[in-house]
Design a protein around this nucleic acid. Structure first.
Lengths: 188, 188
DNA sequence: CCAGCGTCACTACGCTTGTAGTTGATCACA
DNA sequence: TGTGATCAACTACAAGCGTAGTGACGCTGG
């Protein structure tokens, strides 16, 4: 890992643990275990830092989805719901910090249009993967269903992050949704 | 309006326009058109300010949904989808700032558990309204469908805020979802 | 071997921030 | 009318912030 990615990943970790407000040049130095000034040297202004962070995040997210898509390929609506539920549980559990960073970044992109481009690019890539997933899982109109499911997934995670439920079980919501959308048993 | 609500509403506006980082004692003073120190006098610490802001926001959101519930009562899945789409369009259009503030607050609540209580209370109230809505619109299992639809709605809005689409038309996503979940034409 | 160059650690500075304290006005009530 | 209390306005201050500047180091090409 280059020094640059170390700094950016440290900044992402800070985003996830303390929000945008926690991301300062000095705080990133500390988080990355680098001497004071390291972040400031790489990214002179805060905007430059945040822009690079978003790019780095988009890159990591794209890689994570590529990984996932290569591993699991659900062949039925029920399998799709199961995989999505597992991903959701990992997102709010082990990967909570990273997931939280994602939402912080999304909100920040709403204020700063300059941050949107890398997010859009990565998002399109993920959408493509997800659309083919849906097709394999039995969707007859995957282009229509993909954004609907993605939105539902995002909302599900967001609310779970904002007010965690100790008995969080996304299957109760994902299964009926997927089956209603794709068809209960299999294709028509 | 009391001075207190003026200050809090100004803070909410700042949340929506500039994010958490924009909310400082002095910035709120300026936004509210009050002399320097006004916010600091009412809320000594930043945490106190943010806590009160969240309470105020929950109160306003509850009121907004009460209004909505009193005005429109969709009697079929198609009507429900239409009303939800209209609400979504207003949320990202005329009410963009207020909507954005909502997501900023949600993300902040993920970091600061102390902020969750008022959000949960207001959320439950909204969920109740929405559940009865669904029942009237023809849902046979409104308790199951309500959170699913709410999550989808939240995700839809969030993504539209993060990267706005000039031709945003939520009906294309809401209609298939509602009809798949509640049944295409009307009750069984 | 050494000049050139990019990268590093470190320092400096002015501004903003959060928070606290002090003064002055307003008002209820005896 | 006098008085005590509440609240607004203003000021003060220390800490933290973003940003810029400065040598020193180490690598690379000739």
């Amino acid at each position: 890992m280059s020094r640059r990615t170390d700094v950016l990943d440290a900044a992402i970790a800070l985003l996830g643990t303390g929000g945008v407000r926690a991301v300062t040049h000095r705080a990133v130095d500390v988080e990355a275990g680098l001497p004071a000034g390291a972040t400031s040297n790489l990214f002179r202004t805060r905007d430059a830092l945040l822009g690079a962070v978003v790019e780095r995040f988009a890159e990591r997210e794209k890689a994570a989805w590529d990984d996932l898509a290569a591993r699991d390929t659900p062949g039925s609506p029920a399998e799709l719901a199961a995989v999505m539920a597992a991903v959701a549980r990992a997102a709010v559990g082990p990967h909570r910090t990273l997931t939280l960073a994602r939402y912080v970044i999304l909100v920040e992109a709403a204020h700063h249009p300059a941050l949107r481009a890398p997010l859009l690019a990565a998002g399109r890539r993920v959408d493509d993967w997800f659309t083919t997933w849906l097709r394999v899982a039995g969707s007859t109109d995957a282009e229509r269903d993909a954004p609907i499911l993605m939105n539902a997934y995002s909302g599900l995670i967001l609310h779970e992050l904002a007010s965690p439920d100790p008995n969080f079980d996304p299957r109760g919501r994902l299964t009926p949704l997927v089956e209603a959308l794709l068809g209960g048993t299999d294709g028509p």
